[in-house]
């Protein structure tokens, strides 16, 4: 469909005299958010640090060296000190960031994709399909999480390790579980947006023009429902990072000695007062990540939502 037709279908038509591609327009709108730009740069830097960092700072993050007990910060041996069995905290922080960021992003994608698909389908079609999907959503909402995790691990940990290998297998399992347990709110939000949007004029207009159902759902309604989706996504990243920690603590996640930001906070929470930075640094990293993802989300939402050209 031409840009013109699109503009005509858009709920609030903007007077675009110059014809630009949607991407150009989006980028222009995005750049208008200084905070979003800062967030983007921060995220890129974070990702670079955790990917390249462990290559430069090559201390083994899981190797204990218990001779001295814990070591405080700024020791010549370990810039951020060590924990009580002598594992290097900087190395753990760097290595942990890799896992945490990867888990956060992928788990978020899984939950958003599932939630959006189910929510949009239910909200758009309504009726029996909506009913079935809503009950399905209720079911997930009502599941007791811990037994489910235990059961899933019990059923799938071995086979998935065999088929995908020890490390990738556990990663897929963790991301899958976090994603699969957290799509419900997204689905509900998307559903309610779709229910409300499908009654609007521009949808009727699209119907009248003979636009296919899929195109209406994903090219017309979805962009207007992006707000809640993006917010969900940004919240999910932080949530996934924290949830992961707890999974490893349940013995459901990564191998016990692997550090992640979330599990570092959890492992060292009782060391507050002794090794404050061991808890606060990973917490700070999570905070920065959540903050950056969130501001990025705000920028993206404005950029992707054609209605808002302020």
């Amino acid at each position: 469909m031409s840009t013109l037709a699109k503009a005509a279908l858009s709920p609030r038509t903007t007077n675009q005299t110059k014809v630009r591609t949607q991407t150009e327009l989006a980028w222009r709108r995005f750049r208008r958010h200084p905070s979003a730009m800062v967030a983007l740069i921060t995220l890129i830097v974070l990702i670079l640090i955790v990917t390249i960092g462990p290559m430069i700072y090559t201390v083994n993050p899981i190797k204990p060296n218990p001779l001295n007990g814990y070591v405080q910060m700024f020791s010549p041996k370990a810039p951020l000190g060590t924990d009580d069995v002598g594992r290097d905290l900087l190395a753990r922080l760097l290595f942990g960031g890799r896992i945490s960021l990867a888990v956060g992003v992928f788990a978020m994608l899984v939950s958003i994709i599932i939630g959006t698909l189910i929510g949009s389908y239910a909200g758009y079609y309504g009726g029996l399909r909506d009913f079935a999907l809503s009950r399905f959503t209720d079911l997930f909402q009502a599941l007791p999480v811990v037994p489910v995790l235990l059961l899933v691990t019990y059923l799938f940990k071995e086979p998935i390790k065999v088929s995908l290998g020890r490390e990738l297998g556990v990663f897929v399992l963790v991301v899958g579980m976090i994603g699969a347990l957290n799509w419900m709110t997204t689905a509900r939000l998307v559903r309610s947006s779709f229910m409300s949007l499908k009654a609007r004029d521009f949808v009727e207009a699209a119907h009248a023009l003979g636009v296919s159902e899929a195109a209406i759902m994903f090219r017309h309604i979805l962009p207007n429902a992006l707000g809640p989706i993006v917010i969900s996504a940004t919240l999910n990243v932080g949530g996934a990072i924290i949830t992961e920690s707890v999974l490893s603590f349940l013995g459901v996640g990564f191998e016990a000695d692997w550090p992640t930001w979330g599990s570092l906070v959890f492992q060292y929470k009782d060391f507050i007062g002794i090794l404050n930075h061991a808890v606060l640094l990973p917490a700070l990293m999570i905070f920065i990540t959540v903050l950056a993802v969130n501001y990025l989300g705000e920028g993206l939402r404005d950029a992707l939502d054609p209605r808002k050209s302020r």
């Binding site: 979330g262 959890f266 929470k269 507050i272 808890v279 917490a283 999570i286 905070f287 959540v290 903050l291």
Partner: peptide
């Protein structure tokens, strides 16, 4: 904004301990 972000990114087991301390 910043405060809500703190709320979201700090796990409650940590904020709880900090408050107790």
């Amino acid at each position: 904004s910043l405060l809500t972000m703190v709320g979201i990114s700090l796990p409650t087991f940590l904020t709880g301990i900090i408050l107790i301390l």
